[in-house]
Computed example of a mutant assay.
Amino acid sequence: MSAGRSAEGAVATRIGAPAASHRDPTTHLLRLFLTVADELHFGRAAARLYITQSALSRQVRTLEQHLGVALFERDSRTVSLTPAGRDLLPRCRAAVEAMAQVRHAAASHRRRVGGQLVLGAIGAEASMPYAHAVLTELRGRHPDITVTVRSLGFAAQFRSVICGEVDAAFLWPPLPTGLQGLALSTERRVVCLSADDPLARSSRRSPLRLARLARHPVADVPAGVPRVWWDGWAVNPRPDGTGVRPGPVVDDIEAMLHTVARGQAIAFVPAAFRRLYPRPGVSYADVSDLPPVTAVLAWSPARRDLPVVAGLRQVAHDVVHAHAPASTGGPGRAR
C-alpha cells in the first residue's frame, strides 16, 4: 500500500466517527466538492477556485468528516470518486442549485418589498428615445419604484434576465427560448468599420451593399451567446447564401469598437451609434440592403407577474401603442 493510500486510510478512520458528531456541511464545502469532482485533480480545482491546493485538501477533508464518508480516493498520481462520492455527487449538485434558487428568490422579495426595479441594457439602449419614454412614464405612474440600470455585456445579456439578476432588460433580438419581450422600436442599422478601411471613404459618396463587405470578418461574441443571435447581427448567411467569417471575440460594445478600430473586424450596429459612440479610428457607413434592428424590452416568464415587472410591462405596452405607427428612433408598434 502506498503512503498516499495509508494517509487516506487515516482520514477514513477519523471520518468513521459516531453519527452524532457529524454536522451539516455548508454550501461552500459542497461547491468545493463539485469542483474537485469535475476536475479529478486537486491542483486544477484549486486554480479554478483561486485557493491553494493545501487549503482545498483541508476543506475537502472537513467535508468528509462532516458527512462521515470518504468522497475521494487519492494517491500520488490520481484522484477518483469513491462509491459514496459517486452517489452523493448528483445530490450535492442539486443542493447547491437549490440554494442558488433560494438566494435568487430572496433577492426577488428584497426588491419587491423595497420597490426596486433592476433593468439591464445592452449598449446604450437605456438612453434611446423609446427607453427614455418608457422610464419617464414609469416614474410618473409609479413614483415609489426605484430603478437601477445595469450595463450588460454580450455574454450576460440573456443569462442575467433568465437567472433573475435583472428584472427585465432593453435588448436586441432575436431572443432565446425562455424569454418574452415587447418590441419597442425599429431602427436602421449601419456598418461600423475601421476609419482606415477603403470602404469607409467610398461610402461617403454612396451607400455600401452587403456584397462589398463579403470578405470582412464580423466581430464574434462569447460561446455562451446563442449562435442564432450572432447570425442575425452578422447577417449570416448573406442574401446570396455565403457564410460570414467570425472575427475576434468581444464581450461588450467598447471591446467591439476597439477591435473595429484596429481593422480586425466590422460590426453591424444601430444607426444611433453614430451619435452615441463616436470613436477615433472608427467610421460608420450606410448599407442599403442591411436589415433594420428592433429594440425589445425582455423579461423572464418567471418574473413577469412581480409587481414591479408587471407595472413596467404595462407602461411599456401603453407607450408603444401611444406612439404607433412606428417611426425610426421612437417607440414602435408591439410585436
Rank of each mutant, 00 (worst) to 15 (best):
E8K: 02
G9P: 09
V11Q: 10
V11M: 12
V11G: 11
R14M: 09
P25W: 00
T26Q: 02
F42T: 05
A45K: 02
A45Q: 02
A47V: 12
A47P: 07
L56M: 05
S57G: 15
F72E: 00
E73F: 11
E73H: 14
R74G: 01
V79I: 09
P83A: 01
G85K: 00
L88Y: 01
A94R: 12
A100Q: 13
V102K: 09
A105G: 15
A107Q: 14
A107R: 15
R112F: 04
G114M: 03
V118N: 11
V118W: 04
L119W: 03
I122S: 12
I122M: 14
I122E: 12
I122L: 15
E125M: 14
E125A: 14
A133N: 02
V134E: 02
T146L: 14
V147H: 09
V149N: 07
V149M: 04
R150Q: 12
G153P: 03
F158K: 05
I162K: 14
D167G: 06
A168M: 08
A169G: 06
L171P: 00
L171Y: 07
G181T: 02
R189G: 01
V190T: 08
C192E: 10
C192D: 02
S194Y: 08
R201V: 08
S203G: 04
A211H: 12
R212T: 13
P217A: 05
A219P: 12
D220K: 06
V221H: 13
V221W: 15
P222Q: 09
A223S: 11
G224Y: 03
V228Q: 13
D231L: 07
A234E: 05
A234D: 03
R238P: 05
P239L: 04
D240G: 06
D251Q: 07
D252V: 05
A255T: 11
M256L: 15
R262W: 06
I266H: 00
A267N: 02
F268H: 03
F268Q: 00
F273I: 01
R274A: 10
S283D: 10
A285N: 08
A285L: 10
A285R: 06
T294E: 01
V296A: 08
L306H: 11
L306A: 10
V309Q: 06
H321S: 11
A324D: 06
A324M: 03
P325M: 08
G329N: 02
G330S: 09
R335T: 07
R335Q: 12
